[in-house]
Design a binder for these strands. Structure first.
Length: 820
RNA sequence: GCCCGGGUGGUGGAAUAGGUAGACACAGCAGACUUAAAAUCUGCCGGCUUUUUAAAGCUGUGCCGGUUCGAGUCCGGCCCCGGGUACCA
């Protein structure tokens, strides 16, 4: 009589079996229905697998395994996103080539992943650093360039002085470098940019067609930050140029009392008068020195300088002073605003500081003002700011524009139309989303496949010359000029123009690590294709990804970028559908034992290898799923895992040590079995895996009470447990005298009728309080149930000397007796 | 500030559509087995109160109020925690 199973032994045995028999190969063009199940591939860090990784992989492995048993042809691939800084920084420290480190790390990850028994199709594995793969990453870039969506721009970018690297807006967290935490400053560098803004509207629109959590959709929509308004052209007194401003409130045009330019605005030098030039120059210098962090930190006190120039308000020809202030950003809208202090909080604050006029042109709606505790009088006098709806006043030029008496919406429409008619501006849309800074001045990334020729300008490297391989270098550090280490290799940099054959030089920037992950889901479909990114027919069979799970932290970066690339490829006719991911879910983080993030410095890191060694892979998998709701953060509990160890060993003992025979199931057994199959089947589809496991525990606790276990119960149960604990269940399946792998056994089915109970417990309430209960046949008619309730001994006591006014019956649940 | 989540026993968490709050598990306590320990098995386990035990009553899902026969669940106001975003005109 064995007390415990030996995980090491059976896990080894079955992992070998799966590999040798190619059990989890996905078959292209199989007649079965396809299911493409995807998890975000990892960056293979030197630390090895984190316990957070298996949370995502196990959940979708369970889903993938269930789908196979349900007859789907499942594609569940794995690969590695291996370009990036950690390997490069390690190379700088040790002088070992990043490719060697990367290879070691991938080997380690692969071994760890295999030890957990995930049903990946390892045959399709690749790494973004494989030249066979990044050839096509580069090729896609050349397509983007050819379509005019990649361009070089000399713009102020975020520069981390510690990493010596340009950062995308998305990599700057609170004005600091996402990686090292160092403050970020501004620096002008020529960068390759991708016009993701061109796709902004579609990236919002098409969210309607996909099954993503609202949280994810909202975050993407907010990140893209579409806002509608109007562009308005202002003439400048004494200058031929005009300054265009973007406003979401064209209705407030009559309330504009000054204008503000960003310190980086191109017309600032032109319009500044001699008298104010020294001050403005000084202010510009100060502003350029400030980092984004400082700019936002100083946000409490708005500060600016008068330029001496005046703009002419197009609606009423009024001269308004032009100021410069860094609360106006060059990177949004036109870098210039019209200031309406009476109806914009920032302008109000600024006007207060500098004694600029505040002119109310919108009488607040009484109800709204009352709700917000604002006195209408104060707004009318310019002593308070009102940004909400109301009735327009003081808003006519006494000629062709009069919006007095209108509300905000009506006035906005009227003014916008007027601007369009007069040729002074009109409807405009702006986005918070910026174009994607695609250049990195680093070594360990895909070389951007571009060649510069004095005669032909930038020319894309032709397909036949791809990939542009990373050359060997001696030093991996970026140069002090901020250029990539590649710039120092003259024989690599100097080349000839693919167009005209004259001397030319290569781009030395490399791609960001978001590049390789922007299309990897396509490559899994056809990983060995050496003539195109992937075969269109195969993509038509497999795409879209049916279910994509990943971290919440990738919502605004990876998820948006890869949707963008896929849409671009779709527009080129290279992929079959516009939205790559049909359904998206996100897993919560796995925290350390105290609820804190796991980190070496805290010394609370759990190593999956240790857990597998002590308890086995199946216990590890089931524990990670039992730990809490899948989409929420969960903290590791070393004691909690013991409960799962007990559970799986109980399952083992129950089936191995008991008599199992082909006997008929009684009513309770039928109900237990069918309700369990139902619960587990449904919960897997919603990734409520903790409650699925809980139900299987209830089932096991019942089953082990039996003297003789019916074969049907044993078999059905082992099948539904098998996605969770695949090694154990393969072994048990063999014990139950089956010779095939359980992986493709048909999923246990349930009968809706049998899953329901024959007898139900009816609770009796008196005036809403539970007083008694009784069992009765399911679906007993109401009058019978009421009768039974009223004749209940305890209830009789409660109802003595009281009149029963009303009875409420909830079918199969309760009776509530209302007395006076 | 704005946009999302979330506050349930000592702990992780359950609770379909407004219908028995605390499933399942961890920890704890008591017991069985054992020379002993581990493992395993059995029972108890929100708080307060009453009782002779079996039991019974009250109270209880962040706080205050409301709707309802009935609220963890719905509505209004507030507090706290987590995530995202931040002068976006």
């Amino acid at each position: 009589m064995k007390q415990r199973y030996n995980p090491a032994e059976i896990e080894n045995k079955w992992q070998r079996y799966w590999e040798e028999n190619k059990v989890f190969r996905a078959v292209d063009f199989s007649r079965k229905k396809k299911f493409y199940c995807l998890v975000e591939f990892p960056y293979p860090s030197g630390d090895g697998l984190h316990v957070g990784h298996p949370r995502s992989y196990t959940a979708l492995d369970i889903l993938a395994r269930k789908k196979r048993m349900e007859g789907f042809n499942v594609l569940f691939p794995m690969g590695f996103d291996s370009f990036g800084l950690p390997s490069e920084n390690y190379a700088i420290k040790t002088g070992i080539h990043p490719s060697i480190i990367t290879k070691q790390n991938i080997d380690k990850f692969t071994r760890q992943l295999k030890s957990l028994g995930f049903s990946f199709d390892w045959n399709r594995m690749f790494s973004t650093t494989d030249p066979d793969y990044y050839k096509w990453t580069q090729w896609i870039f050349t397509k983007i360039f050819e379509k005019g969506l990649a361009y070089k721009a000399r713009i102020p970018i975020n520069w981390c002085t510690s990493c010596n690297i340009g950062l995308a807006n998305e990599e700057v967290v609170n004005g600091c470098c996402e990686r090292c935490g160092r403050e970020v400053e501004k620096r002008n560098i020529e960068q390759w940019m991708l016009r993701i803004t061109e796709y902004a509207d579609r990236l919002i629109q098409d969210l309607n067609d996909v099954d993503f959590p609202d949280k994810v959709k909202n975050q993407q929509i907010n990140w893209i930050g579409r806002s509608e308004g109007a562009d308005v052209d202002f003439n400048i007194s004494g200058h031929p140029e005009t300054i265009t401003v973007f406003t979401t409130r064209p209705d407030t045009l009559f309330g504009a009392t000054y204008m503000v330019l960003s310190p980086e605005h191109e017309l600032l030098d032109t319009i500044t008068t001699e008298e104010y030039r020294p001050e403005v120059e000084l202010y510009k210098k100060e502003a350029s020195r400030k980092s984004d962090l400082e700019r936002t930190e100083l946000s409490t006190e708005k500060y600016g300088i008068f330029t001496g120039a005046y703009a002419i308000n197009p609606v009423n020809e009024e001269n308004i002073p032009i100021w410069v202030a860094d609360y106006v950003l060059i990177s949004y809208g036109t870098g210039a605003i019209m200031a309406v202090p009476a109806h914009d909080l920032r302008d109000f604050e600024f006007a207060k500081n500098f004694g600029l006029p505040i002119r109310c042109i919108n009488r607040p709606d009484e109800k709204l003002a009352q709700r917000d505790g604002v006195l209408v009088e104060d707004v009318l006098n310019g002593n308070a700011c009102w940004t909400l709806d109301g009735m327009l006043i003081n808003s006519t030029n006494n000629k062709d524009l009069d919006i007095n008496g209108l509300n905000v919406e009506e006035a906005t429409k009227t003014v916008t139309r007027w601007l369009e008619e007069k040729g002074l501006g009109g409807f405009a849309v702006n986005y918070k989303l910026r174009d994607w800074v695609f250049s990195r001045q680093r070594y360990w990334g895909e070389p951007i496949p571009m060649i510069y020729c004095d005669d032909c300008d930038w020319v894309a490297v032709p397909e036949k010359d791809l990939p542009v391989l990373l050359p060997e270098v001696e030093k991996y550090e970026p140069t002090d000029t901020g250029e990539s280490p590649l710039a120092a290799i003259k024989e690599w940099v100097n080349t000839t123009c693919p167009k005209c054959g004259r001397d030319a030089y290569r781009e030395t920037d490399t791609m960001p690590n978001w590049a390789g992950s922007s299309w990897y889901f396509l490559r899994y479909i056809d990983p060995d294709n050496d003539s195109e990114i992937a075969d269109l027919k195969k993509m038509k069979y497999w795409m879209p990804v049916d279910w994509y799970n990943g971290g919440m932290e990738h919502t605004t970066l990876h998820l948006l970028y890869s949707r963008f690339w896929n849409k671009f490829l779709y527009d080129c006719g290279l992929v079959p559908i516009s939205e790559p991911y049909k359904k998206r879910t996100s897993h919560g983080m796995v925290l350390g034992e105290g609820g804190e993030k796991m980190s070496k410095s805290r010394g609370n890191v759990i190593n999956p290898d240790d857990v597998v060694r002590e308890y086995g892979a199946d216990v590890f998998r089931v524990y990670e799923m039992f730990i809490g709701p899948f989409d929420q953060a969960a903290s590791w509990d070393t004691k909690g895992i013991a409960g799962i160890d007990r559970f799986l060993n109980r399952v083992w003992r129950t089936i191995v040590n008991n008599e199992i025979s082909d006997i008929k199931l009684n009513k309770e057994q039928l109900h237990l079995l069918h309700s369990t199959i139902k619960k587990v089947s449904e919960d897997i589809e919603t990734l409520d895996l903790n409650t699925a496991i809980s139900q299987m525990m209830i089932f096991t606790n019942e089953l082990r009470k039996y003297k003789i276990i019916p074969m049907e119960m044993a078999e059905c149960f082992v099948k539904i447990l098998s996605p969770f604990a695949p090694h154990l269940c393969e072994e048990l399946w063999e014990t139950l005298e089956h010779t095939n792998s359980i992986a493709y056994e048909p999923w246990s089915e349930y009968d809706e009728e049998l899953a329901r109970q024959d007898f139900v417990t009816i609770v009796i309430q008196v005036n809403g309080k539970v007083r008694s209960q009784f069992d009765i046949q399911r679906d007993t008619p109401d009058p019978t149930v009421i009768d039974a309730a009223l004749t209940d001994e305890k209830i009789k006591r409660y109802c003595e000397e009281r009149e029963v006014k009303r009875t409420i019956v909830v079918k199969n649940r309760l009776v509530n007796i209302v007395t006076d």
